[in-house]
Design a protein around this nucleic acid. Structure first.
Lengths: 203, 203
DNA sequence: AGTTTCCTTGACCTCGGGGTCAAAATTCAT
DNA sequence: ATGAATTTTGACCCCGAGGTCAAGGAAACT
């Protein structure tokens, strides 16, 4: 298990350094590809010292994943059934894209995990993600039924938003290789996606 | 280097078995996560026997990647500047989605690679992918200029097609977890994406 | 059949990586 | 200042994984 809440200043500081380093390494190499030595290095600690703060490699990973899910789902939670349908969905797209821009490591960590069959987060997908998506899909379906949105499958709409926004974090090197220098992928993506979903959803 | 073209029946058979097994394992575990023992097991060979056919783990991976790129880019190559703009792009979407459905392991292999910074295919991205995309982006831009497509950034249009179609292969477990049983993700995705891009691109 | 070439394997080598431990260094409380 | 608690480290253990090698078994050719 992970140790209890950090109490001392040193624990606070080192735990944070470890988690940050681990995020960097895990997101770039995947769970098996990451090594404790790399993480310890990046955190500026010796390996045994690192294991003084976290009992195992799995424990570090688990803590990262746990912290991740909350942040990751917040933008969808914020989708408000009382708001204007198109504006709400465009707002969701914008927030999700900002997340990709500001937290690409978290996005890649998640992608790595799901790509490999989600062995460590399968429970969370069923237990947290699905109910939330069901809830918001119902909201969107209601908007469609009321004629306030163009007809659309709400689940696949949400999938497409995930796909298009996370793409800019997860496939960053590819995007930049194709665009070449002198581009701001996220800024351009913001415009493009707003157009895409506006045309898709407008009545 | 990889050995020359297989000549004998046995070489043919075993090379194929190895590459198929390796595709399975690499796509599910990533390069570092995959082990030669796993691959040998799946291929029904001993590890030394496997290394009789391929000189190293890297060699197997390199051969897979090389074979992948061609298949992966073919649908985009087929985009015909002489055809009807919307139909051409919808056709590209359809072919790309079929690729995700029929070759999900290849999709995940590619995703794993790019996610981890494309260390082994950086050259191919610059040397093969970019020129092709530049070419097709120019075609799309011309269609827009002629007023035969709604105004759109061709590069980000292509990115969004990659993202939305590959999502169903790469994030398969997530898609299925959210949809629950009794769904055919790819069939539904086909309908959804056709609607999405039709509304996006129609004049 | 005999021989050459190809295929397969068991045993082995090495090293990287997760994890342990006891002792040293440091911090903290009084 | 001094003893207790916390933090840090060097040395070590062990296993899994990539890769080698020499020799045994099959095909194939004549």
């Amino acid at each position: 298990m992970t140790r209890a809440k950090p109490k001392t200043r040193i624990q606070q500081k080192n735990s944070e350094a470890i988690l940050d380093a681990a995020l960097e390494v895990f997101s770039q190499a995947g769970f098996r590809g990451a090594t404790l030595d790399q993480i310890a290095d990046r955190a500026g600690l010796s390996k045994p010292n690192l294991l003084y703060y976290f009992s195992s490699k799995e424990a570090i990973h688990a803590e990262l994943i746990a912290g991740l899910l909350k942040v990751w789902l917040d933008p969808l939670r914020a989708l408000d059934s009382g708001g204007d349908p198109v504006a709400e969905i465009l707002g969701y797209v914008r927030r999700k894209l900002e997340l990709s821009r500001d937290f690409p490591r978290e996005s890649r960590l998640f992608a790595n995990e799901v790509l490999q069959g989600a062995p460590r987060i399968d429970g969370a997908l069923q237990g947290e993600l699905k109910p939330l998506v069901d809830d918001k899909a119902a909201v969107i379906a209601a908007w469609v039924a009321e004629g306030r949105l163009a007809p659309v499958d709400p689940y696949h709409l949400i999938f497409s938003i995930w796909a298009t926004t996370q793409h800019y974090a997860d496939f960053d090197v590819q995007v930049r290789a194709v665009l070449g220098p002198g581009h701001d992928p996220f800024a351009e993506a913001g415009d493009f996606l707003e157009t895409l979903y506006r045309r898709m959803l407008a009545i």
